[in-house]
Design a binder for these strands. Sequence first.
DNA 1: CTAAACCCTCACGTTGGCGTTAAGGTCAAG
DNA 2: CTTGACCTTAACGCCAACGTGAGGGTTTAG
Lengths: 136, 136
Amino acid sequence: MRIGELARRTGISERALRYYEEQGLLRPARRPSGYRDYDEGAVDTVRDIRTLLAAGLPTALIAELLPCMVNGTAGLAPGCPELVPYLEKERDRISAAIDDLARTRSLLNAIIAATPPENPNPPVCDREPAVELATR
Amino acid sequence: MRIGELARRTGISERALRYYEEQGLLRPARRPSGYRDYDEGAVDTVRDIRTLLAAGLPTALIAELLPCMVNGTAGLAPGCPELVPYLEKERDRISAAIDDLARTRSLLNAIIAATPPENPNPPVCDREPAVELATR
DNA sequence: CTAAACCCTCACGTTGGCGTTAAGGTCAAG
DNA sequence: CTTGACCTTAACGCCAACGTGAGGGTTTAG
């Protein structure tokens, strides 16, 4: 398929798809005209790329990681044990990020719950503090 | 205290602290010399800023949110119900981010677990695919 | 009184993941 | 054979959260 269809099927802009290729994440075939020609597996690959990007992995690492994933059968290929330290590092970073996000979400929820509803004529503020901040 | 001490006590660079002020997140007093003069509460405020920043909240929203937090007693002040929609939006975004991170972490863990250990003389690849990708 | 440490305000540079023209080829339909 | 949809490369723009000097004042210790 050409780039437009892949963009529609993945929801990713054409610009982003060209960028992924520039970064070595996608390697579409080329037609005589120069048009990019993607196979069906590209749809899944793009989805994987998005998942990894959303997790904060840099494109350079994703580029090395993708060849370790067998596209069609959704399996893992051997041969990249040298990546493991990086993956462990990313995993730990992700764990820390999850913890931080969870704490912040609790904070936001507490603030939302404690916020007084819309009041056109608010009384003087004499309420007690209601939410613990500084979640250390 | 001056900016250097605050930087040491928070672990945040002086440049970042000046940037936070530029964005309206901190409002230190000024000495006749022009030097910034922070009170003790600034340490906690900086920590809150970092937590919220780490969760992806933009400085503009943090600037509106901070006045709703009573610094010393660690409580919540009323008077900002108009922020609630934004907070709910951020909370939902954070929830989605957590889910995505958790999925990616599982993916990374699976890859790590399935990666063959260092093998200077690897056999021909005839193993079965071991990891499910495309965690939709 | 001087040196060192500390602080100030510009103001440009960096990084990543794209968005956005600009200036043009390709291809199927009418 | 022209229109219009689709594609190409090239290249500049953007945003956030700072980093990194440049060039110069302030405070403190000896």
